[in-house]
Simulated assay, not measured.
Amino acid sequence: MAEMIGGVLVGLGIGWGFDLFVGTAPWGMIVGTLSGFAVSIWLAVHSAKKLSARALKEFGPPRDLPDDADADDNDR
């Protein structure tokens, strides 16, 4: 969650600084915020892939669930 919020805030800050020096009023902040959001999404996906690979290495592949037919027979 911190990556998501941090990325957006950093992008907003960079866009604000760009607007301050160049004078392109809200466009720098808009582009910076959207870029920060995109980088945040990329970082979250990258972290999830890394954690998933580590869990697969540590625990092995997930086990299958039992068939639904077994559960349906008990309900009748």
Rank of each mutant, 00 (worst) to 15 (best):
G17E: 00
G17N: 01
G17V: 03
F18H: 01
F18M: 03
F18W: 03
F18G: 01
D19A: 06
D19E: 13
D19N: 11
L20E: 15
L20H: 14
F21S: 02
F21K: 04
F21R: 03
F21N: 02
F21W: 05
V22S: 14
V22Y: 08
V22W: 07
V22M: 13
V22F: 11
G23H: 03
G23L: 09
G23W: 03
G23S: 08
G23Q: 03
G23M: 08
T24Y: 09
T24Q: 12
A25C: 06
A25Q: 11
A25F: 14
A25H: 11
A25S: 08
P26K: 02
P26M: 03
P26D: 02
P26H: 03
W27C: 07
W27S: 10
W27N: 07
W27A: 12
G28R: 00
G28I: 00
G28N: 02
G28M: 01
G28F: 01
M29N: 08
I30M: 14
I30P: 11
I30D: 14
I30A: 15
I30S: 12
V31I: 15
V31K: 08
V31S: 12
V31N: 13
V31C: 12
V31W: 10
V31G: 12
V31H: 07
G32E: 06
G32M: 01
G32H: 02
G32L: 01
G32V: 00
T33W: 06
T33G: 12
T33H: 05
T33Y: 07
T33A: 14
L34R: 02
L34T: 04
L34Y: 04
L34C: 12
L34N: 06
L34F: 10
S35W: 06
S35Y: 07
S35F: 09
S35H: 05
G36C: 00
G36Q: 00
G36M: 00
F37R: 06
F37M: 09
A38W: 02
A38K: 02
A38S: 09
A38Q: 03
V39D: 09
V39H: 05
V39K: 03
V39Q: 07
S40V: 04
S40P: 05
S40D: 02
S40C: 05
I41T: 11
I41E: 08
I41S: 09
I41K: 12
I41M: 12
W42F: 13
W42L: 08
L43V: 06
L43P: 00
L43C: 07
L43W: 08
L43F: 09
L43R: 05
L43I: 06
A44S: 15
A44Q: 15
A44C: 15
V45P: 10
V45R: 14
V45G: 13
V45S: 14
V45N: 14
H46N: 13
H46A: 11
H46P: 02
H46D: 15
H46I: 08
